[in-house]
Amino acid sequence: MYMSVAELVDAAKKTKKPIYELVIEQEMDTSHNTREEIWDAMGRNLDIMAASVKKGAEGEGVFSKTGLTGGEAVKIKNYRSDKKTLSGDLMMQAVQNAVATNEVNSSMGVICATPTAGSSGTLPGMLFTLKDRLDLTRDQMIQFLFTAGGFGMVLANNAGIAGATGGCQAEVGSASAMGAAAAVEIAGGTPEQSAEALAMAISNLLGLVCDPVAGLVELPCVKRNAIGVGNALIAADMALAGCTNKIPADEVVAAMDKVGKGLPSTLRETGLGGLAATPTGVRMKEKIFGKSVEAKA
């Protein structure tokens, strides 16, 4: 099993195989499933992602039970069609896709965790935007997911992907890094450039805290995926331009692990610090989980 970014990059260089191919081979080896079974399973994940990107931006959009989040993917969609966006249509398309997916998640709809539910918008946000930008085929989109997943395994086994242990950097940060690395490969970059994109994406979100208002995966989680996908696009473009992170990817991953362990528990998915502890955040919590709500439950 590939346990570091360096191992994955070295193997890709040595075998002259794309990273997605190495990840598929690793999966065949560990699961004893056939290539076709593995490929089809990833295809089903892709279909779920496509459905959530679409569902969140249709009609009035989707809304969570609490009313804290929802309907904003539709606002972004309308803004894109009515106005001249500041950051360009591609960037806002990515943001729309990411927000749509996470609004579906907050409304207790079906999503594919990538790597987590709270960060489930970042990767589809990236992928369905690149689909249009680079005219990706279905096969290429599935390849993108294997590459992203392979890098994600390295992150998860070395630094973890839970907000409760590592903060949001471990969730949206990991998703952003996976998306950046996979985007570089699908755009024709080298394995080293994928590693640089991953390193830059994490470096830029290092220290991001997990501070959900009322403990709900809504505020600020939905919009954190907007920065996750924006950061992924920027990191991928910088890597493709030849920029390097200077600090190697595996050292960045180790730093993320250490930073996560150093975060106080109030900033690790307890809903006790950060935005959750603001006067408005506390009022929202009391409104949602006040006596009347508990009596109903």
Binding site: M108, I111, P115, G118, F146, A156, N157
Partner: peptide, 25 residues
Amino acid sequence: MTVNYKSVFDIIGPIMIGPSSSHTA
């Protein structure tokens, strides 16, 4: 090192009802 994530589908997946992979799935 402890290898908790043994499959690419631990990372891309699971398909689940929201809202939290660690607190729900």
